[in-house]
Design a protein around this nucleic acid. Structure first.
Length: 482
DNA sequence: TGGGGTTAT
DNA sequence: ATAACCC
């Protein structure tokens, strides 16, 4: 149903969605059947569906691949399977497979510590993200076949809103096959599932969809991962991590408080990052319970109304943020870190490398970036607050040369970037950089204007005589200038 | 700590 | 342009 009304979240949308108790009674299986059916009212919300009241009935799947980079490396190099494997960037082991974890290697451990813990550790360099990125998008595209509403989080996680799929299956369930009514994977807290509770039913169907997603990812791409199924993004993400590698878990609403209560610190709450944690701690807030019971007024004064209200809702397991389809990337960037870069010539060389890779990527994408940015990190003792950037529009004559490999686009681009560089760094003074990054953003699709093509002057029309199956058109009003 | 990404201000 | 968040 493609309703129009967007602001009807409160009351009075009379689209009742009751199930036939008789059908459910017969469905039993090994699962207990109790109580009367609940009717749930539906209302549209940003193209997705939310409950008419305030308790959410969305079904969200969070898919989280196991040690993603390591898995991709083991597919590329099958001889590494079974060995403890770490993926190295500079002097860090950024991730590792489960064999390595058993031997004490942790994510983001230094190579020194990792080798000390585990001398047999095999290391592969993972500084070039190309294959990871490509595999990552294959996973997202596969999930988009289930439902187009897929939001990426990093390279190895995706949220999928399967509410509509679940609704469809709920209605198709009617006549025949009750054997499908069994939960797939774990149920958080081993909570009993009530098939007469339509919210439980939806989540159960969600767990089956999640299992199908993981199967498809394994069969088609050879990757394993976890999944979490719940009524919002926060809970689905938290619950996906409860059984770890290659397993899935569904959260029934009654266990929400247990799940968020299982966090031992607010820092573990997705959405509460480093800075907010610092400020919360200074207020004496350390646990989820502390945050739940803290004065909302004081919290708002301390963090601003937006952050305060959002994170306090999170502390109760409430998260109304929609699954926002990611679509194609908003930006492309390449970066390189190093011990020291202290001359303009040196910087220019590194920038040329970054730019060459970026031009390749942007060319394959097909869209044209209209903005370029240079990011630097200066050497300094304090680690956290130190990246500076300058950006500028890319001149249109340079944009046009993009993709058409013939002309030299490097030279004008490098010239632009070096201007940005000199704007940030006084090259007449000594400097010490530890990172350079180049980013293309403001991506626009190619001259989509059908201007010049006949289609530009025609508009599709259904109002004309024949229903012969041929498309009909009307002449459009068109200003001819420009 | 790496090499990426996103949105809000 | 920066600051916060995510992996």
């Amino acid at each position: 149903p493609e309703e129009e009304e967007d602001e009807d979240e409160e009351e009075e949308d009379e689209e009742e969605d009751a199930m036939d108790p008789q059908l459910l009674g017969a469905a039993g299986g090994s699962l207990r059947v109790t109580g009367p059916l609940e009717a749930v009212r539906l209302a549209p919300f940003h193209g997705q569906v939310v409950p008419a009241g305030s308790s959410s009935y969305r079904v969200i799947v969070h898919v989280d691949l196991d040690c993603f980079y390591a898995q991709v490396e083991m597919i590329s190099h099958p001889e590494l399977k079974g060995k403890p494997l770490g993926v190295q960037q500079k002097y860090l082991v950024v991730t590792c497979n489960y064999e390595a974890r058993k031997l004490g290697v942790k994510k983001l451990m230094s190579v020194r510590d990792a080798k000390e813990k585990c001398p047999q550790l095999v290391l592969v360099n993972g500084e070039d993200l190309t294959r990871y990125r490509e595999m990552s998008y294959k996973v997202t595209e596969l999930l988009e076949e289930f439902s187009p509403v897929v939001e990426r989080l990093g390279f190895d996680e995706n949220f999928v809103d399967v509410t509509q799929m679940v609704e469809k299956r709920l209605h198709q369930l009617q006549s025949d096959d009750y054997s499908v009514l069994t939960v797939s994977g774990h149920v958080y807290n081993n909570q009993s599932v009530n098939l007469n509770d339509v919210l439980h039913l939806r989540l159960l169907i969600g767990s089956q969809i999640a299992a199908e997603m993981r199967e498809a990812i394994f069969n088609q791409l050879g990757l394993t991962g976890c999944a979490g199924v719940a009524s919002n993004k926060l809970l689905s993400k938290l619950v996906s991590g409860t059984f770890k590698p290659n397993q899935q878990t569904v959260l029934m609403p009654e266990s929400s408080q247990d799940l968020i209560g299982s966090l031992d610190h607010i820092k573990q709450m997705p959405g509460i990052g480093y800075k907010t944690t610092q400020r919360l701690e200074s207020l004496g807030i350390n646990s989820v319970h502390d945050l739940q019971t803290f004065s909302p007024e004081i919290l708002e004064k301390e963090l601003g109304i937006s952050v305060a209200q959002r994170i306090q809702k999170l502390s109760f397991g409430e998260d109304n943020s929609p699954v926002t389809p990611s679509g194609p990337p908003q930006s492309f960037s390449e970066e390189d870190s190093f011990k020291k870069c202290s001359s303009e010539v040196e910087a220019k060389k590194k920038i040329e490398e970054l730019l060459a890779s970026l031009l390749n990527r942007v060319c394959k994408d097909g869209r044209k970036p209209h903005t370029i940015r240079l990011i630097i990190r200066r050497f300094s003792s304090d680690r956290h607050v130190n990246r500076e950037s300058r950006q500028c529009p890319i001149p249109s004559h340079v944009i046009q040369k993009l993709g058409t490999g013939n002309y030299d686009v490097m030279t004008p681009m490098v010239d632009i970037i070096m201007k940005l560089f000199r704007n940030m760094v006084n090259v007449k003074m000594p400097f010490h950089l530890t990172l350079l990054s180049v980013c293309f953003s403001n991506l626009k699709s190619l001259p989509t204007s059908k201007k010049g093509s006949i289609e530009f002057y025609l508009t599709p029309s259904s109002s004309t005589t024949s229903h012969s199956g041929k498309r009909t058109y009307k002449l459009k009003d068109t200003h001819m200038e420009e």
